[in-house]
Design a binder for these strands. Structure first.
Length: 805
DNA sequence: TAATTCGCTAGACCGA
DNA sequence: TCGGTCTAGCGAA
């Protein structure tokens, strides 16, 4: 028996006759793989006959050829409001046997429910054993059998994680690279100590390593990984490209890409439309997936997700792009191999740095929901919330609700509910504005009104009277709900962390750690409300979701009303905010007092916050009509910082020339109060466009291809441009963002649209960019100052007249 | 295997 | 050719 300190890296299970949990550890003596045969697959059933009798009946026979290995009678709550009741816990040799027999077991007459029959085995283990990946443990294990005997969490600083990034280049003429035929010509490997590029050709760079052929190239990489033994392998799109490619090439060449800690090759598993590729014992983090996830959570905002844009925006480092065809040319001509190698190396470096940047966040998120880094870096909001609620359910001996059937999902999708309230703005220029908003509105409503699937419409008359939402559902006030209990715990933890952060020095190790922790809490907290209305969610409850928004509407409207009563003018508000104008006879202090007064009447942990004061702000009318446009406005604070919301300036599907000009116009108007200056700026830009002087990069419009290209009913410019590019042989996958330019050639806008890469400098439709981009972007703003379209176009009328004559 | 609703706008599409 | 309607995308919260 041996004892050691160990950090838990990864968990999976062996799919043999018996399913056996396997844990991957990092210890002071190196890596360690241990089995835990003491844990068996199981699920629960409730029965309507005496449990002993049911157990006996179930033990007697086989179900779809499977004999239940063992049955325990345990006390579990069917739902949070139930009392614990005898429940059968059925154990199996393997997950396969569990799956094979669960339907037939459920079909028994005396079985009333089956529960928790579809929880992935390794995840199940981490829940039941209360294990957090990447935390430190003291373990006791059998050295000979390599079996885990004891594991205890210890409060120690985790070991440093060794990371390595890899990236490949392939040679493929005229088609998307096919690993069955097209070779890998270069591979880069980057870790904290070295950076190399492995290639079969001579490259005159210090970091280059020459190998004799492609097989050796793969073998060299494998050897390097085994020798450096990284805990984390980083790629950019390695889930669907690099890793499966390397594996297939290895197969073609009669070697193995066996970089798993247990000597296995990477394995791809389906994940929605694409796949995730897993390396056993080494945590594969795909930086592309990381960025996608962070975009969804609103942590980052990227227009395009190719490594060049990412590098420039996130790392502030420009990086050259080499197109696929050019790679082929370089390879054939042997000219520019150094450039290609540099490009290859940079790809790995950028991926490495992205992951390095966000690793603390993902580690904390993983610890919070007991997911491995592999899973947490690919998880969705609903998965993370579910994982957390499963943990809580286990701790409280509550059975987890089942996933809904497809019919249920369909029925749920049919029913929508009303969302947040958006105040119709007072259009025009306003001065002296205060913005108030609710801190974590949805989570605090859930907590304060005890909103939970298990508290809705309880039997108490009193609750109905005291705690009914404007949407007419009420929530129990006598027993704390399952969901609010969890949300409150996380919320309070975050408040405490934020308080502590204020005392710490920014940039220190402790600060970064706590910051990542509070950030992970924020992400989860913000996900609860949305998941309540998500049709596939185990804890779905439209009543709860609609109660949250109903109360949100009530509170936000209450603030707007009270502000008016207090002598302010409410000019706008959206979901959780109120924009109020401070009249000359009132001060900023009055606003603060107002906020305090509101807080004194708000229930529970709900809190209205003063977001800030603004010198000026502009709200505009909609494109047509007199009505004010919601969700678009611009503010400037007393330090002259601009805040532009909703306008074309923040949208990727507008050309930079329009966006930049709009920003300048807003700035001129808000900062200096000079609409004349704004007019001049626009005129200047129009002139530039007319003269053909505008640079290509200022004209690119980005848009996403959101579905298979042939499924479009209505072919917009971006789809038309993509179709033309596909004809030329370019591969455009579903989900990719394309950049296009409206050129001079063609009749309709779609005809004129071409992918940016095929357009020469100067080839653009000036009139389009003036009439459909520049003017729409600025007209609504300058109209607020009494100017019109004609003030922008010098001789505009004439030019349009001459077009007819 | 996918968190929600609200809102604005462009440009294709279609019938008169 | 015109104008209304619909598809599509993106952003706010």
């Amino acid at each position: 028996m041996k004892r050691t300190k160990a950090m838990l890296l990864d968990a999976d299970y062996l799919r043999e006759e018996r399913s056996i949990i396997r844990l991957f550890f990092k210890t002071p003596e190196g890596k360690l793989i241990l089995k835990d045969p003491s844990f068996e697959p199981y699920f629960y059933v409730t029965v309507n006959i005496p449990p002993e009798e049911a157990a006996k009946k179930l033990a007697e026979r086989e179900f779809n050829g499977v004999k239940i290995k063992r049955i325990e009678i345990v006390k579990k709550k069917l739902t949070p409001k139930d009392e614990p009741a005898s429940t059968l816990k059925l154990f199996f040799n393997s997950t396969k046997e569990l799956k094979d027999s669960r339907e037939e077991i459920r079909a028994q007459e005396f079985v009333t429910h089956k529960r928790e029959y579809d929880i992935p085995f390794a995840k199940r283990y981490l829940i039941d054993r209360d294990l957090e990946p990447l935390s430190m443990y003291e373990i006791k294990y059998d050295e000979e059998k390599l079996e885990l005997k004891e594991i205890k969490k210890i409060d120690e600083k985790p070991f440093e994680l060794k990371m390595a990034a890899i990236d490949i280049e392939t040679y493929s003429r005229g088609r998307f690279a096919d690993p069955k035929r097209d070779p890998i010509i270069m591979v880069s490997y980057v870790d904290d100590e070295e950076k190399i590029v492995i290639c079969t050709k001579e490259i005159k760079e210090k970091y280059a390593v020459k190998v004799s052929d492609e097989k050796e190239l793969i073998d060299y990489l494998v050897k390097k990984i085994k020798e450096k033994d990284p805990d984390i392998i980083i790629t950019y799109n390695g889930d669907s490209f690099d890793l499966p490619y390397l594996k297939e090439r290895a197969k073609q060449l009669g070697t193995k890409f066996d970089i798993g800690l247990d000597g296995s090759e990477p394995k791809s598993v389906k994940k929605g439309l694409d796949k995730a590729t897993r390396i056993k014992g080494r945590l594969h983090v795909d930086a592309y997936q990381v960025l996608r996830m962070l975009s969804k959570f609103g942590v980052i905002n990227l227009v395009k997700m190719d490594l060049e844009s990412v590098s420039s925006i996130l790392l502030d480092e420009e990086k050259e792009k080499i197109l696929a065809e050019e790679i082929n040319d370089i390879w054939d001509s042997n000219k520019g191999l150094e450039r290609l190698a540099d490009y290859n190396l940079k790809d790995s470096e950028v991926a490495y740095r992205i992951v390095q940047e966000y690793l603390p966040l993902f580690i904390e998120l993983g610890k919070l929901v007991h997911y491995t880094l592999f899973d947490v870096s690919r998880g969705s909001s609903s998965q993370l919330v579910e994982a957390l609620l499963m943990l809580e359910s286990f701790k409280k001996d509550i059975l987890v609700p089942n996933k809904p059937s497809e019919e249920d999902v369909k029925a749920r999708l049919m029913q929508s509910y009303q969302g947040g309230f958006v105040y119709e703005p007072l259009p025009g220029l306003h001065e002296n504005i205060a913005v108030l908003d609710f801190t974590s509105l949805h989570p605090t409503i859930i907590i304060s009104h005890n909103i939970s699937p298990d508290t809705v419409n309880c039997e108490h008359k009193e609750c109905k009277e005291k705690n009914s939402s404007p949407a007419k559902h009420w929530f129990c006030t006598k027993r704390k709900g399952f969901l609010p209990a969890v949300v409150e715990k996380l919320f309070k933890e975050r408040v405490a962390l934020k308080r502590k952060l204020k005392e710490l020095k920014k940039g220190t190790h402790e600060y970064n750690l706590l910051y990542a922790r509070q950030h992970s809490l924020k992400i989860i907290l913000n996900s609860f409300y949305g998941t309540l209305g998500y049709a596939r969610f185990r804890w779905y409850s439209r009543e709860c979701a609609s109660a949250v928004t109903a109360w949100s509407r009530e509170y936000v409207q209450m603030v707007a009303r009270e502000a008016e009563k207090a002598g302010f003018t409410t000019i706008y508000g959206d979901t959780d905010s109120a924009f109020i104008k401070i009249p000359p006879n009132k001060t900023q202090d009055d606003v603060k007092k107002f906020v305090e007064r509101i807080n004194s009447i708000l229930p529970g942990v709900m809190n209205l916050e003063l977001e800030g004061f603004y010198k000026r702000g502009i709200f505009v009318t909609k494109k047509t009509g007199e009505q004010a446009a919601k969700k678009r406005y611009a503010l400037i604070d007393y330090n002259d910082n601009l805040k532009i919301v909703g306008f074309e300036y923040v949208r990727r599907d507008w050309a930079p020339i329009a966006k930049e000009t709009q920003r300048k116009v807003i700035e001129a108007v808000l900062k200096e109060g000079k609409p004349e200056k704004a007019i001049e700026i626009v005129k200047q830009k129009i002139k530039e466009l007319r003269e053909g002087k505008t640079k290509k990069e200022e004209l690119i419009i980005y848009s996403q291809i959101k579905k298979p290209i042939e499924e479009y009913e209505s072919v917009g410019p971006h789809v038309a441009a993509a179709k033309k590019a596909i004809k030329r042989g370019k591969v455009i996958e579903e989900g990719s963002v394309v950049g296009y330019i409206i050129t001079k050639c063609g009749k309709t806008i779609s005809d004129k649209a071409q992918l940016e890469e095929y357009v020469n400098e100067g080839n653009y439709d000036a009139e389009y960019y003036i009439k459909n981009q520049l003017i729409p972007a600025v007209i609504k703003i300058i109209r607020e100052f009494g100017y019109d379209e004609e003030d922008l176009i010098e001789g505009g009328k004439q030019s349009s007249l001459s077009a007819f004559s």
